[in-house]
Simulated scan of single mutants.
Amino acid sequence: MNLNELPGSEIILPGLSDLHRGECNTIGALLVAIASTRLTEAGLDIPKDNLAPEPEITLYALLEDERDDAYVYYNALLNQLNSFCNALELSYKYKPSNFTV
């Protein structure tokens, strides 16, 4: 399965790349940090050393600095993250060795 086909991949996959480069305070990297346990259990390699300590709080603060509708956007991002995780978990359950980025 191609991870680019999963819902929310346009935010999650760049966040994963950010973490691999040591960047932990981007929107995508913070979303990956929020769901790092789920993503790891579903087969993704998450660099644990680069995770923000309180990603939910950090993400919300970042959004507040950038947007007037931080609450709405925060919830939309969490919904995208959940959709990505759900699709990844289903894919992993049925085809654990077929992931490509």
Rank of each mutant, 00 (worst) to 15 (best):
D18M: 01
A29M: 09
A29H: 02
E66F: 03
D65T: 07
E64W: 04
L44I: 08
L51Q: 05
L44E: 05
A61F: 07
P55H: 01
D65M: 12
K93S: 13
E5S: 05
A33T: 09
A52N: 06
L6P: 01
I34S: 00
V72R: 09
D45C: 14
L44T: 03
N75M: 15
N2D: 05
Q80F: 14
N4P: 12
I57Q: 06
A29Y: 01
M1G: 10
V72N: 02
L81Q: 15
P14Q: 06
D45K: 08
M1D: 15
D49Y: 09
E56K: 10
E56H: 14
E41G: 14
A61L: 06
Y73K: 10
A61V: 01
P47I: 11
E5N: 07
S9N: 09
E89M: 15
N82F: 08
L44G: 02
N82S: 11
Y94P: 08
S97T: 01
N4Q: 10
P96C: 13
D18A: 01
S97K: 10
I12Q: 01
D18T: 01
L90E: 05
T58W: 07
N2F: 04
G22C: 00
L77M: 08
T40M: 02
Y74P: 12
P55N: 00
Q80T: 08
T26I: 10
L78Y: 06
L30W: 01
L13R: 05
P55M: 00
D49M: 00
T100N: 10
P96M: 12
L13G: 14
E64D: 04
T26H: 13
L77T: 00
C85D: 09
K48E: 12
D18K: 01
I57Y: 12
L81P: 14
A70E: 13
P96Y: 15
G8Y: 03
R21V: 02
P47V: 06
K48I: 06
A87L: 09
L30D: 02
N98I: 13
K93W: 11
G22H: 02
G43L: 10
E41S: 05
R21P: 02
L16Q: 00
Y94N: 14
S17Q: 02
